[in-house]
């Protein structure tokens, strides 16, 4: 009896320690990224680093404003492409499709979610980029191409989370609206969607995080010129690509500046995750009602 009691305790401790590993990991990731990046920011000067418009590693110029702007533009572009398509698809799945069609389409969306990002990038490089070059000129590697590819990549996130939150709206809401004489479309857009707002916003914020953090797909279609783009057909470099492209051969302050780029990216992600948690909690409260 005593021995088994001791084993029980040991197992419970093992489970607890495993669970604590996640906390240790997130803490050490944050810590190490900042420890490696912050000294470089100090050496370059935070103003020169964040607001500097010139990135020339050879001349010791490390301004990442073009990459910050690039990341923001690309993310907004991805949302412009992905949010409407995703949201309307989610409305179809939850409100209009019969069960068989919905099940099939959901599998298709799952498949889209599983496609590796480098495959998206390669697909963009061989099909989207030449198309843009053909119709608009300029080579095709551009902010526009990145927005389209990222817009496609965030579709599964938008569709699955929005659909779930639309489904979570109580049946009575729709029935009440229909009983008052409004049409199906009317009830969907004026009653159901406003009730599912928090969940839909959560899906968009999560998609923002995906888009701003994506690396390989963007590198292959964006052109990677470290300048602030002035048109959607300009080449663009994001924070993530800046790290991935130059990390292989960087050393000294250059390497530090790349870790510092990681710090800025990390700050963006933390803000986005924080906003997501707020919306998600609101959506959860709504669903619990």
């Amino acid at each position: 009896m005593k021995k088994s009691n001791w084993q029980e305790k040991l197992n419970e401790k093992l489970y607890l320690i495993s669970a604590l590993i996640s906390i240790a990991l997130i803490l050490s990731i944050t810590l190490f990224i900042f420890i490696k990046g912050v000294p470089a920011i100090k050496e370059i000067g935070i103003k020169n680093f964040v607001l500097g418009t010139k990135w020339k590693a050879g001349d010791g110029q490390y301004g990442i404003l073009p990459m910050i702007v690039g990341s923001i533009y690309v993310t907004i572009g991805a949302c412009l492409v992905g949010v409407p398509i995703g949201l309307f698809t989610a409305i179809y799945l939850s409100e209009m499709a019969n069960k068989k069609t919905a099940d099939f389409l959901r599998k298709v969306v799952e498949l889209l979610a599983g496609i590796p990002s480098v495959v998206f990038g390669f697909f963009g490089l061989v099909s989207i980029v030449p198309l843009i070059d053909k119709f608009f000129g300029g080579g095709g590697n551009s902010l526009f191409a990145s927005s389209i590819i990222l817009g496609i990549m965030i579709l599964p996130t938008i569709i699955s989370i929005s659909e779930a939150s639309i489904r979570a709206v109580p049946k009575e809401y729709r029935e009440g609206s229909l009983a008052l004489g409004s049409t199906h479309i009317d009830s969907t857009f004026k009653v159901i969607l406003p009730s599912a707002k928090s969940g839909i916003l959560a899906s968009i914020v999560l998609a923002l995080g995906r888009a701003i953090g994506e690396t390989m797909a963007v590198i292959l279609v964006s052109g990677n010129t470290p300048l602030i783009p002035h048109s959607i057909f300009d080449r663009v470099r994001t924070l993530t690509s800046n790290i991935a492209i130059e990390m292989g051969y960087a050393y000294g302050l250059h390497q530090g500046a790349l870790f510092a780029t990681g710090v800025i990216l990390f700050v963006f992600i933390m803000i986005i995750n924080g906003v997501f948690l707020v919306f998600n909690r609101k959506a959860g409260e709504l669903n619990d009602r």
Binding site: I23, F32, G213, T215, A244, G262
Partner: peptide, 20 residues
């Protein structure tokens, strides 16, 4: 912590892996 880990971009994991 688990939720945050799931939200971190892979390039950041790459940086962490490089450092550690």
């Amino acid at each position: 912590a688990i939720q945050s880990l799931a939200g971190i971009p892979s390039i950041i994991f790459g940086l962490f892996g490089m450092i550690v």
